[in-house]
Computed example of a mutant assay.
Amino acid sequence: MDFKSKKKLKNESFVDKFLEGRDGEGRGDYDGGFKSGSNDSLIPGLYDDVALNCLAWACRSDYFSLSGLNVRFSKLMKSGYLYELRKKLEIVEHWVYMVCDPRGWEAFDPMRNKWVKLPKIPCDECFNHADKESLAVGSELLVFGRELFGFATWKYSLIHHSWFKCEGINHPRCLFASGSLGSVAVIAGGSDKSGNILKSAELYDSSTGKWEMLPSMHSPRKLSSGFFMDDKFYVIGGMTSHTESLTCGEELDLKTRKWRRIEGMYPNENKAAQAPPLVAVVDNQLYAVEYLTNDVIKYDKENKKWDVLGRLPVRADYSNGWGLAFKAFGKQLLVVGGQRSQEGEAIVLNTWCPKSGIKNGSLDWKVLGVKEKVGVFVYNCAIMGC
Rank of each mutant, 00 (worst) to 15 (best):
R257G: 04
L246A: 08
L278M: 07
R257P: 02
E244K: 15
N268S: 12
C248Q: 15
K255Q: 09
M265Q: 08
A272E: 12
R261V: 12
V279C: 00
G264M: 02
K258D: 02
V279F: 02
V279R: 02
H242F: 14
S245A: 12
P267T: 09
I262R: 08
L252K: 07
K271G: 13
K258L: 13
V279L: 06
V282L: 01
G249C: 12
M239P: 05
K271I: 13
E244L: 14
R257Q: 15
E251R: 01
K255A: 10
L246V: 03
E269C: 13
H242C: 14
R257M: 08
M265I: 01
D253G: 01
V281D: 07
M239K: 05
D283R: 12
M265L: 11
L246R: 07
P276W: 03
N284K: 12
K271C: 14
V279K: 04
Y266P: 02
I262A: 10
L254D: 00
D283K: 15
V281L: 05
D253M: 05
Q274M: 15
V281W: 05
P277T: 04
V279N: 00
Y266I: 09
G238N: 03
S245P: 10
Q274Y: 13
E251H: 06
R261Y: 10
R260W: 04
L252E: 08
P267Q: 03
C248F: 15
T247C: 05
I262N: 02
I262H: 11
L254W: 01
W259G: 04
R261F: 07
N284G: 09
E269I: 13
R261H: 11
A272I: 14
P267E: 04
A280P: 01
P267A: 03
E250C: 03
K255P: 02
S241I: 10
L254S: 06
Y266D: 05
L246I: 07
E269Y: 11
V279G: 03
P277Q: 05
T240C: 12
K258T: 07
S241W: 00
R260M: 11
K255L: 10
T256L: 04
V282P: 02
T256F: 00
W259T: 03
L252G: 08
N268C: 07
E251T: 00
K258W: 06
N270Q: 13
W259R: 03
C248I: 14
P276L: 11
G238M: 09
Q274S: 15
R257W: 10
E250A: 09
G238K: 00
T256M: 04
M239G: 06
T240Y: 06
T240L: 09
L246Q: 09
N268M: 12
T243G: 10
R261W: 07
T247Q: 11
E251V: 00
N270F: 00
L246M: 12
